[in-house]
């Protein structure tokens, strides 16, 4: 099939750009660990609220400047509803749902993941700036979806 010389130039430049995009995200994902949240652990969704560790949703200190947030998402709230960490802390969020699919997003950060019933979702983030961070549900979960949010306070 004959292709115009300019079309070849265009398609090759396009292919090179797309490859570069893929290399950038690929290296960032596989060499630097910036993978999208893809945790494989499962849980019985009906028993989630009574299964450890989700029977006691809480924020715990697990190391130097390191915290673990065990959270439950259910229509239309997150528990625990109040969390505080000092500035510079890395928080490992571990979230599951007791009912329908929810979202878990902290605006202005890269914290964004789906919370699917039956699965445990995990994501980590280091809070360098103090402030009251909004944690909101970004997947439609019912009539009260727009009120489903809590805040995480990062102290200076």
């Amino acid at each position: 099939m004959h292709m115009h010389k300019y079309e070849k130039i265009w398609l090759w430049s396009g292919a090179v750009c797309l490859t570069v995009f893929l290399l950038i995200v690929g290296v960032s994902a596989y060499a630097m660990g910036n993978q999208p949240p893809s945790h494989m652990e499962t849980i019985d969704p009906k028993e989630a609220a009574v299964t450890a560790p989700f029977d006691k949703p809480r924020m715990t200190k697990v190391g130097d400047q390191e915290y673990e947030a065990i959270m439950l998402a259910q229509a239309f709230t997150f528990t625990p509803s109040k969390m505080t960490v000092p500035k510079g802390s890395t928080v490992h969020f571990k979230v599951t749902s007791t009912d329908v699919v929810h979202g878990f997003q902290i605006p202005s950060t890269n914290v964004n993941m789906m919370v699917t019933p039956g699965y445990v979702s995990k994501i980590s983030y280091t809070f360098e700036e103090p402030g009251k961070y909004l944690i909101l549900c970004n997947e439609y979960c019912g009539v009260g979806h727009q009120v489903m949010a809590v805040t995480l306070e990062v102290m200076s």
Binding site: H4, Y6, I9, W10, S13, G14, C17
Partner: peptide
């Protein structure tokens, strides 16, 4: 087709 090439490169 030089105009075409420049146009698509602009898109790119």
């Amino acid at each position: 087709l030089l105009g075409t090439l420049l146009s698509v490169m602009g898109v790119g």
